[in-house]
Design a protein around this nucleic acid. Structure first.
Lengths: 145, 145
DNA sequence: ATGAGAATGGAAACGGTTTCCATTATAATC
DNA sequence: GATTATAATGGAAACCGTTTCCATTCTCAT
């Protein structure tokens, strides 16, 4: 299992390991607060403190095991990715579920930007907001406020 | 002048008008705090309070005169756009200046997403981070931390 | 002039995140 | 196994951008 071997190789500390496992179980974009709540709801023992969760997310991010996603509501969310990979999402503004797009189609675009603007691309943010299939079938006539 | 006529048509209040004018003079992506600071540095009279600046930015945004940009540092920035239009940026992580891309090339992509995922696209976020021409010529060998 | 509704400013509250510091766990050395 | 140095942890406080609250001021139709 990938997580285990990473633990051995990079000596992931207990907090980081616990958070990574939680994130895997939760299985969707989660903020530090989400994870903290999840621990309080599901596990009695070994639940790391909020501070530790923040630290764990930071170091997991630095190890390229996570991707951070900012949907603009002031809460940073995280998600497990293949080490070094990243992808983008369709985020439903109704149910807040997210569909992740398999491939990042911007890589190709990056090189054209580099040439056209003399700009060295390091990273990018792309998130698409809207209403998912489930939600739009629930309420056929959503008021577009 | 566009701003003036909008003022007459939509009865922009004083705060909103003042903030819009400031934003135009500053001429780059600015947060509420940036604008507040700018007022304190440049103008003695008529400087709206921070609260008013927040309110003004909100209503200008609702009127589609501004675009909000979130570069993930917890501070929302705003920029004047042609009413209803939007665009994306190349943001230099070194000097924090931003180059705005003329056209949004994602509009076309949206319809393919809608068909493929049954997802109704309402909005999206796309920002590209890296090092601009100026900054990369300043330090030819930037350490890639 | 008068009175109702909107706009404004200042202070307090809010909430996610970071920092601080004392305590506890971990691992290497003797 | 005892002793230390170092890292990890938890809890509380600080931080900071933003929002809310409320009393005051402005605006404008009557």
């Amino acid at each position: 299992m990938m997580i285990q071997s990473t633990l051995n190789q990079q000596r992931l500390n207990k907090g980081s390991y616990t958070v990574l496992r939680a994130l895997k179980e939760i299985g969707k974009l989660s903020s530090a607060q989400d994870i903290h709540l999840w621990f309080r709801l599901n596990e009695t023992a070994d639940a790391p403190a909020l501070t530790t969760i923040y630290r764990a997310l930071d170091s997991l991010l630095k190890m390229n095991l996570l991707q951070a996603v900012d949907i603009g509501d002031g809460e940073r969310r995280y998600e497990i990715v293949e080490p070094g990979e990243h992808h983008h999402h369709l985020i439903c503004t109704d149910c807040l579920e997210s569909i992740h797009l398999e491939k990042c189609f911007l890589e190709a675009f990056a090189s054209s930007v580099e040439q056209r603007h003399g700009f060295v691309v390091r990273s990018h943010v792309l998130e698409i907001f809207g209403i998912c299939r489930k939600c739009s079938s629930k309420k056929p006539k959503a008021p577009s406020v």
